[in-house]
Computed example of a mutant assay.
Amino acid sequence: MKNLFLIAYLDLKESIRTKWFIVYSLVFGGMIALFFIAGVTQSQVMGFSGLSRLLLMYIQITIVILPIFILITTVRSISGDRDTHILEYMLSFPISLKQYYWGKILGRFTTVFLPVFLAMLFALFYGMIISTTIPWDIFFLYTALLFALTSAFLGIAFFISSFVKTSEVALGVSFFIWIFLLAFIDIALISLMMQNRFEEGFIITIALLNPMEIFRVAAISLFDPELTVMGPVAFYILDTFKQTTFVLFSVFYPILLGFIFAIFGYKIFAKKDLI
């Protein structure tokens, strides 16, 4: 266990040394600061105002930015160590493959989740200073959703990093997966729905397997329980799930998905030629 935390600490230290962690933190912290400067908390749209509207805007942008940030900074975690022969050096110490792999995951999870969480925490503290209403329920639910989304894409990223041979290939694969989940899957499913090749329920079920999609739906449902902005899709979701059930599904499913990918990644990592 000591070696696992040591690997996590070394990964965190390396992330700070390479400056990407600082840039990553400035991106999300800068978004929050920009929202306050732009006066988002003083305006009202569709009944949303104050910190509720700020968090809504923040979470919608995070859906797009967070997955690609996690993928491009994590897929090179193992493959990059292999390219630079750091992996060979680390394994020369009395450290097991399990400690190395899960230590890297723990360290990388800290570096990708902490800036996103701290940015929201900063928004709440600033809201207290200016004496605005604090939406604690939305804050805790968004924290859980961000934790789940981070877990899902971190597991996917380590799965990719466990079998690719070079960092360039890892980046290409991760970028394709991000584009596919973000845009192509929605376009393909809408096309199939318009051509009536499959039942709507089957198509929407496939869409809900996409962690980015269920994150988006769950985030919207917190402000719009009727999901009126989603059109016909809302009727199927509301008929299938209660809002509470769907939010719980949106939290636990991505965590489980990320854990499964991480386990498969470890099995591949442990069996293949490491050097």
Rank of each mutant, 00 (worst) to 15 (best):
M1R: 03
K2M: 05
K2N: 14
L4H: 08
F5D: 05
A8F: 11
L12E: 00
L12P: 00
E14Y: 02
E14K: 13
I16L: 15
K19A: 09
F21H: 04
V23E: 03
S25I: 10
L26F: 12
F28S: 04
G29M: 10
I32T: 10
F35D: 08
V40M: 04
V45G: 05
L56W: 11
I61L: 13
I70A: 02
R76Y: 01
R76Q: 10
G80D: 08
R82Q: 08
T84E: 14
P94G: 07
Y100W: 06
W102T: 09
L106P: 09
L106V: 02
L114Y: 08
V116C: 09
A119Y: 07
M120G: 09
Y126W: 13
M128D: 02
S131G: 11
I134V: 15
I138W: 02
I138A: 02
F139A: 06
A144V: 04
A144L: 14
L145K: 08
F147V: 11
L149P: 12
A152V: 00
F159C: 13
I160H: 11
E168Y: 14
A170L: 01
L171V: 14
I177Y: 11
I177R: 08
F180Y: 12
I187C: 03
M193P: 07
Q195G: 04
F198S: 11
F198L: 15
E199T: 14
F202G: 02
I203M: 12
A207K: 05
E213H: 11
F215L: 06
A219L: 01
A219N: 04
T228P: 02
V229H: 04
G231M: 04
P232N: 02
F235Q: 05
I237F: 15
F241V: 01
V247Y: 00
F249G: 09
F249V: 06
V251S: 05
L256W: 01
F264I: 15
A270Q: 12
